[in-house]
Design a protein around this nucleic acid. Structure first.
Lengths: 132, 132
DNA sequence: ATTATACTCTACTTAAACAATAGGAATTGT
DNA sequence: ACAATTCCTATTGTTTAAGTAGAGTATAAT
């Protein structure tokens, strides 16, 4: 049970975007240097945010990224999900045939509850909460 | 962010012990067969519960395991911690020199809060809750 | 005592996931 | 044209999880 570097780096990237929201476009290089993260790696992470629709991109010289919504409208759950896929503590949470006993598996409810706990928590916090 | 098989198998093992608490000793083989888990692997997991003081062991023929306390007195946090070590979502939670900026790292508080959220939840549930 | 049973200890192997690197293509401002 | 910047995708390296293996130790039953 660890948070991946993709999610951690991704948060740092999104925080930069939030701090510069409505001010300027943010470039990969800039975040890469200030956070000491490989720019090539960060590119991939930024890409997943783009795919998730969390950022808007301007290509070419003087291009860069900006949030596609206000910091208040972007939850931490959306960020972590974009970075590392759906939050699924155990496969039995979403795959119905993972555990033969699923319907009467005594543990299933616990995992589902815990998973909901975590997603509710992350879903209730926004980028705005983090930067202020 | 996944729960390891050690923890998942470990829970199943502990549930068997809870269901047989004050009834009989439970053997690795028995759980291994009924849950379709490698007995050698389960041995290792059972060992970590022993080290954590969660189970009592009787060696030799007719030996086996039983809980060292009542199911109500064993939290799920203790079980998962015994199985996969301390729950630490990010290294910056416990290692003070992991992030140079730790004191003013904007994310640290979030990880600590989320970690506490999860440990509080698991700490508030007991084996008894699961089996009843 | 001997034997069968069950836990103990430790080393090794395999497989999967994570993390990072690499390089060229496409786009845009000057 | 050229430099800056994102886009795409393939590959490599590293770490951890997962599982296997086997010899050793303790105990109950006979």
């Amino acid at each position: 049970m660890k948070v991946s570097t993709k999610a951690r780096y991704g948060f740092k990237f999104m925080i930069h975007l939030a701090l510069n929201y409505n001010i300027k476009l943010v470039q990969i290089r800039e975040v890469s240097v200030s956070e000491k993260i490989s720019s090539k790696y960060l590119e991939q992470i930024a890409m997943s945010f783009k795919i998730a629709g969390l950022v808007k991109v301007t290509r070419g010289a003087k291009g860069g990224y900006t949030l596609s919504r206000t910091p208040k409208e972007i939850t931490l759950l959306e960020i972590i999900t974009a970075a590392e896929g759906n939050l699924v503590l155990t496969d039995c949470i979403e795959s119905s045939d993972f555990c033969q006993k699923k319907d009467d598996c005594i543990m299933n409810k616990l995992w589902v509850d815990l998973n909901n706990h975590i997603t509710d928590y992350l879903g209730s916090k926004t980028l705005q909460d983090i930067i202020s």
